[in-house]
Simulated scan of single mutants.
Amino acid sequence: MSSPAPLRSSTRVRILPTARLPRLARPVGALAAAMVLILGLAACGSDDDNTPPPTPTGCATDTTAGDTKAALLPVPPAKVTLLTAGAEPGAVALSAFDRASAQSAKLVTTSTFASPDGEGATQSATTVDLPMTARVNCTDATDIDLQIGTAGSPDTALNEALKAQNGSRAGMSIGPGVAPISLRILPGEDADDNARQAVEESLVSTFQRSVTLPTEPIGVGATWDAVRTVNAGANVRQTINATLTAREGDQLTIDFTIDESPINSVFRLPDGGTLTIDSYSMTGSGSVVVDLTRGVPVAGQMKISGGRTLVGGDGTQFQQLLGFESNWA
């Protein structure tokens, strides 16, 4: 990883409560422990025998929208700038959701963090396997219902904890460009903090990096930028540069690169304190197949990695290496 130029701004910013912030271990020299993102999850519990309910079919007759028990997690909207329209004839990519049948999908994500050396050096990877059923609402095409199937993980302890997530329910609101603008997760009684955090990080980190489609006509070869501001301890500007590489009916194949850089040099800690961002770099790429009749991608993969160096008021440095991968099938 190349070291980005130091940031000079020291403007303070408000950190949203849904941000995942670092857990800093005792520093050794100029280095410290990795960041652990802190997002609480709420999800439905399951029966005592952990048997998920039957797979739903067709469209959803009810919704998690407005449910007072649901945790609402915003997905920041992206500003899309069409760079080239691509081959003629172009067409606007409008959703045409299938209400006759439910979509079976699977999302597999892996989050990594590490502190590179020193006495407190550590590294970890968390993989979460989330089969799900996605259904559009029977009367509201902007509302997608998600039911989690048999969630799992290669980690034995997490795999056991995830059994309480089987059959849990979530939902998304879809905005212009067929992009999620909010994620709703119902609270659960049986899932522990590790299971809730793992599932929520999997969903939020994936949908916050989703590709927003232009609302103008596009053809194969079209390119566009989608820029949104997300929160990861600091306010981060995320830029996705996308290219439409193929279109077959309602299915669009999109290749993209992703770059995330902080808007200023302030990093806010959970206790209200702040650190200064000395350097920051997160870059990646991916490909996704969007079916305009379905609620979530039908295929795709994305990988982003990098790190940051944070500096405390006493000059102590905290170096963190981060990564995230997602795969749709």
Rank of each mutant, 00 (worst) to 15 (best):
L41R: 11
P131V: 07
T206W: 01
D225Y: 02
G323E: 04
I148R: 02
D250T: 15
L162E: 01
N235A: 12
L203N: 05
A25H: 11
E216K: 10
L24Q: 09
A25W: 10
L183G: 04
C44K: 12
F113K: 06
A85I: 02
R209T: 07
G273H: 14
P52T: 01
G40P: 08
A329Y: 06
L269A: 07
D291T: 03
T212F: 01
M1H: 11
L41E: 10
E248G: 05
G40N: 12
P54K: 02
K303H: 14
A105L: 00
T276S: 14
D271G: 02
A179M: 08
K163Q: 14
F324I: 08
A85P: 13
D314V: 06
G295D: 07
S3T: 15
V311T: 14
A170I: 01
V296I: 14
T81L: 10
S261Q: 14
T122F: 12
P56Y: 04
F97W: 09
G45T: 12
L186T: 07
T68V: 13
D62I: 11
Q320P: 00
L158H: 00
G221P: 04
T229G: 00
I254E: 01
S2T: 14
G120H: 09
A60E: 09
S261T: 13
D62P: 04
P214G: 06
A329N: 15
K303W: 00
D314I: 05
A65P: 00
E216L: 06
A179C: 05
G152H: 04
T18K: 10
V236D: 05
A60P: 07
D192V: 10
A121C: 02
T316R: 14
S2M: 09
